[in-house]
Amino acid sequence: MHELSLAESLIEQVERAVEAAGGGHVTALQLSIGALAGVDAAALRFGFDVAAQGTRLDGATLDITLLPVIIHCPSCDAGVELPDIQHFRCPRCGTPSLDVRQGRELTIETVEVLDETPSP
């Protein structure tokens, strides 16, 4: 299980980006997880909730988009989506391909930030 350490890295990355953009509290976070990234969304959510405590991401909702693997098929000369991650061949023509164009990523896409109310 490496989701907790991934959650920690992603929180650190978001904190840095938000600080650079003028600060504020993060209320939501959009993530993309590729099918081949080997990241368990439920474990990541759990790790995130724990690791976010006391940070500017505390209580933020995690919106996760799961991305299927897309390989480039040399025979069809096209990107094709794989129905699973066990068979690296074109579902249309059966040609094997290792040319992965999508599916390995774990990407922080956008965050929603609320400006902190100035202290009195």
């Binding site: 890295s9 990355q13 980006a17 939501a28 922080i108 956008t110 929603e112 930030v113």
Partner: peptide, 16 residues
């Protein structure tokens, strides 16, 4: 107050 949206587009494995 409406939150502002910040584009990050960074991979979490990037540091490694």
């Amino acid at each position: 107050m409406k939150p502002r949206v910040l584009e990050i587009r960074q991979g979490v494995f990037e540091k490694n």
